[in-house]
């Protein structure tokens, strides 16, 4: 009896850790989304497409370089940069002219970008799904209380906090970050003191896009890379951002944790409806705190 209970609880623990590693991806993507939403006020639906593009780019890089660790690191570098470059073009080419539009219009504009980008991915990479294997270094599992936890999940568990610290440093310790933070609260004030808000916005947008690309690159070895992988993710990222408080990076972290954990625990508790729990969590949170858990920058 005792050993059975033990097994159940260690199973719960691995499930939690797997959930947490998925949380990393959710956090990276939704922190980018919330940055853009908080500073530029753009509800960017194309963020999911950028994530998808990040995954495809990572896949191409890894396949071109023939796998192995260097290829993996190259993918983790190239994918965010490529997506950031695309983001730069979008920001300078379109959004920079449209900041004063209604949110509804911006939402629909980014949706049309998502449509366009989706088909562009289809043109470049084809409609079939692709997959890359986890680099040899990360293959295999660590033994945790007698249950396996894949090394790659362990790696993701480490990446999450690293990104969180990195973002904290960028926002609180760099000039650009501080200005962006100020612009999120009051962009008129920032431009009134003679700072070019346009470039602050561009910087923020590009940073947010790079995060989407990074998220895509990190998920690449874990899933089938396919068209449509953007749809479910962007939805989840949006819910996380809403739950955490629009524009609040720590809110995105908190939201991702809640979302990831309720999902993995939900699956454990009631497999069929496991995926329902995170949605339920979002609704419960919003019923009591309609503007999100943490202070939004709106």
């Amino acid at each position: 009896m005792g050993s059975l209970g033990n097994l159940a609880s260690s199973g719960t623990l691995t499930q939690i850790l797997v959930g947490l590693s998925r949380t990393t991806i959710l956090f990276i993507v939704s922190s980018g989304l919330t940055l853009i939403l908080g500073v530029l006020r753009i509800p960017n639906i194309a963020h999911g497409s950028l994530y998808m593009i990040g995954a495809f780019v990572a896949c191409t890089v890894i396949q071109t370089l023939g796998g192995g660790m260097p290829a993996f690191w190259a993918a983790l570098t190239v994918a965010p940069l490529a997506v950031a470059a695309l983001g730069f073009v979008l920001e300078r080419g379109f959004f920079s002219y449209l900041y004063d539009r209604e949110h509804l219009m911006l939402l629909l504009l980014t949706f049309s970008f998502a449509l366009i980008l989706g088909d562009l991915v289809k043109i470049v990479w084809g409609a079939e799904y692709r997959s890359v294997t986890v680099p040899a270094f990360f293959q295999g599992s660590a033994e945790l209380f007698g249950l396996p936890l894949p090394y790659y999940n362990l790696f993701l568990l480490l990446v999450g906090p690293v990104i969180a610290v990195f973002l904290w440093l960028v926002i609180n310790r760099t000039r650009m970050g501080k200005i962006a933070l100020a612009a999120a609260v009051d962009s008129e004030m920032v431009s009134a003191v003679g700072i070019n808000v346009g470039w602050v916005f561009a910087f923020t947008f590009v940073l947010g896009c790079a995060l989407a690309g990074l998220g895509g690159a990190l998920i690449a070895p874990m899933v089938n890379i396919s068209l449509g992988m953007d749809h479910s993710l962007i939805m989840e990222a949006f819910l996380i951002v809403i739950m955490g408080g629009l524009g609040n990076i720590w809110g995105a972290l908190l939201g991702s944790l809640i979302f990831g954990l309720t999902q993995s625990l939900g699956i454990l508790a009631w497999p069929q409806f496991g995926i329902v729990f995170p949605y339920l969590a979002v609704v419960v949170v919003l019923l009591f705190r309609p503007k999100g858990l943490l202070r939004s920058t709106w």
């Binding site: 379109f94 629909l108 504009l109 949706f111 049309s112 970008f113 998502a114 449509l115 366009i116 989706g118 088909d119 562009l120 043109i123």
Partner: peptide
């Protein structure tokens, strides 16, 4: 959807 996206934009 590319066509639609462009029209919409």
């Amino acid at each position: 959807s590319l066509v639609l996206g462009v029209i919409l934009t």
